[in-house]
Nucleic acid binder design. Structure first.
Lengths: 229, 229
DNA sequence: GCAAAAGTGTTTTCATTACACCCATGT
DNA sequence: ACATGGGTGTAATGAAAACACTTTTGC
């Protein structure tokens, strides 16, 4: 397999579908492009990957520059490489999604973005490049994975109520779940820690707070347990 | 997002984990490298992707050049992009797996391969580059997908017996399945066509032949059915 | 005292598992 | 006649689904 210079003339980028949850709806963080191509269009945050930068690092950097967040759940999903997907040459892009707690975000200005906003998924119709397809692929992947891995928690504050957790699942999976069955199942997994602290100032019976317990989860997994919702 | 020449200096390749099944064991098609780097090592078949070539096309071409097969089940799995994964510069590789009927293969000579062979998965210990990791990732993906999608059939001849199908699943999933339960389940899905033709020349009661019926499968799917094994 | 969400068990239904014998063929 | 794998049904078990009322708080 020869390696002449002629082979080294592609660019590659990462695009990151950043999911957040505001308590009611699943959202995606989008930027509005300042410059051509696709000036004025909404797009996924992404960037060219440097020569000496690992792919995952590239995706994390995009996220950190935009939101200031570190230590994020990140997952590679698919690589999009159609010949004509980018008007400025051959650019292959590796798509990731990340899950963050929406309250942790402090959006920062960016040189090539006009605006940065959380958009409700159902409201998104077109995006720059092939970004709509990328978002859709990542959304489908999230829907699958959230049923088999305990990743939903990443979208919530450290402490949350069971109703918040249920609403999260309902909005990702786009279907209603039965309250009793949901609680029974999630609690029987034994991966949540319950806190004595209660909700404050709500005009109804206050809910208990829970948090995801990674240690319990590892323990459960070792005993041949499978997260499945 | 600027696009100067300096961005266009990466190469990318596809690597293809080609699975086959010989009736007893799951196998992978490997090549032995003739040249450095990794001369003498076994490796996954792969190639640099041309500037004007779609990724999937690149993966199919690798397969076709090696085996003469077209119309193959192919699935993108993951993209490997560690900075130092390739000794000759920054080469990002997109990994695919394909499923083929081992009997259809006529192995063709290749300029950079010494030898091409079907290797039993469990016998493989090291491979060139990061190919072992790539193979392992693809194998795990196959194991998951084969339970949720009717893709196992791609590894068998058009007509097969239920015992052959069961053995296939057993060797992919690496566990024994109960004969009666397996048959009950697969037949209840109503996605197989039964043929009147019987096995010939076997020293036991001859088995019926079946084939996968894509039309029945589509019909079943529309009625809200899910392949799951 | 009323509105609003939290919290809690039981029954029914369905899918999965475990399990053993007769059948058709070649030698 | 015997060795070999093909083919078949039922009972027990466990998971998922359906379903309604009481509790605690703020106003």
């Amino acid at each position: 397999m020869p390696f002449q210079d002629e082979f080294y003339k592609s660019a590659f980028s990462v695009d990151n579908v950043i999911f957040g949850f505001d308590g009611d709806n699943l959202k995606v963080l989008l930027i509005r492009r300042k410059h051509d191509p696709f000036a004025g269009y909404w797009a996924l945050p992404g960037d060219i990957v440097e020569q000496d930068q690992d792919l995952d690092k590239g995706a994390l950097k995009v996220l950190e520059q935009l939101t200031g967040i570190q230590n994020v759940y990140l997952e590679q999903v698919h690589t999009f490489g159609k010949v004509d997907r980018h008007p400025r040459g051959r650019v292959i892009t590796v798509a990731y999604y990340s899950l963050i707690n929406i309250d942790d975000v402090n959006i920062r200005p960016s040189s090539f973005a006009d605006k940065v906003e959380w958009k409700e998924i159902r409201s998104i119709e077109t995006l720059a490049y092939d970004h709509y397809e990328i978002m859709d692929t990542c959304l489908k992947r999230l829907r699958r994975n959230v049923k088999y891995r305990p990743i939903g928690f990443e979208l919530l504050p450290k402490k949350f109520t069971l109703t918040e957790l249920q609403k999260l699942y309902e909005s990702i999976l786009e279907k209603d779940l039965d309250k009793r069955n949901f609680r029974k199942k999630i609690l029987s997994m034994n991966i949540l820690q319950v806190h004595s602290e209660l909700q404050q100032g709500v005009a109804h019976r206050p809910a208990k707070f829970y948090s995801f317990d990674a240690f319990k989860y590892e323990e459960a997994k070792e005993n041949g347990f499978n997260f499945e919702l």
